[in-house]
């Protein structure tokens, strides 16, 4: 094929290819990272309110592709109403030794350009894994971009029954099946 092409044309062909390739390279995936995002949760049961939070959420957003991944060490949650309750959280409910991480990863559904400053309300679709049970979820988030910093705020609920965490009869008035979760994270370019 090359022998049939005149040298000049071939050069042009190469030039175009190279330009295309380099043009592709000029847009590397823009990654934004947090290692200290905050997650808090709350269980509102008739007899007891339980709250706990962690500031050890780590997460990455690739703004060119619109995908993201967030993770947390379950052991990092602090709060609760007593030390025993925290122990039960890790030992009996979340089984943190067996399943140390909870995660959410997926894609932003809306076609938004997060390289432009502004406030966006987006829906994210992904796999929420808690207690080693993955669930496909669509979670709404408020995303604010300002001076190359992305702030994410999101509130959603998690059903313990969705993640294979049974509530024993004796505490069914003290622990809600529906857990309210709030996430606040500030991501900077990596």
């Amino acid at each position: 094929m090359f022998q049939r092409l005149p040298f000049k044309r071939y050069c042009i062909f190469l030039l175009i290819l190279t330009m295309a390739a380099s043009g592709f390279r000029k847009q590397p995936s823009q990654l934004y990272l947090t290692t200290s995002g905050k997650i808090s949760f709350r269980s509102d049961a008739p007899l007891e309110v339980i709250r706990a939070s962690s500031t050890d959420l780590i997460g990455l957003i690739d703004i060119t592709k619109g995908n993201f991944s967030f993770k947390i060490q379950v052991h990092s949650f602090q709060g609760f109403n007593s030390p025993l309750q925290k122990e039960h959280f890790n030992e009996n409910y979340m089984e943190s030794d067996k399943y140390p991480e909870a995660s959410f990863k997926g894609k932003i559904i809306e076609d938004v350009d997060l390289s432009v400053d502004g406030a966006y309300q987006v829906r994210t679709k992904g796999i929420l894994t808690i207690h080693n049970v993955p669930q496909e979820r669509i979670i709404q988030s408020d995303v604010t971009v300002k001076k190359n910093i992305i702030t994410v705020h999101s509130a959603f609920t998690v059903l313990l029954s969705d993640h294979n965490i049974p509530i024993p009869m004796v505490v069914n008035q003290k622990l809600a099946n529906e857990i309210k979760v709030e996430v606040n994270a500030t991501l900077e370019p990596r």
Partner: peptide, 18 residues
């Protein structure tokens, strides 16, 4: 090829961070 290798895997970076 080099361009494709920049197509980063989010999870591996996240695991490194963790």
């Amino acid at each position: 090829v080099k361009t494709f290798s920049q197509d980063t895997n989010l999870d591996s970076i996240l695991d490194e961070q963790m």
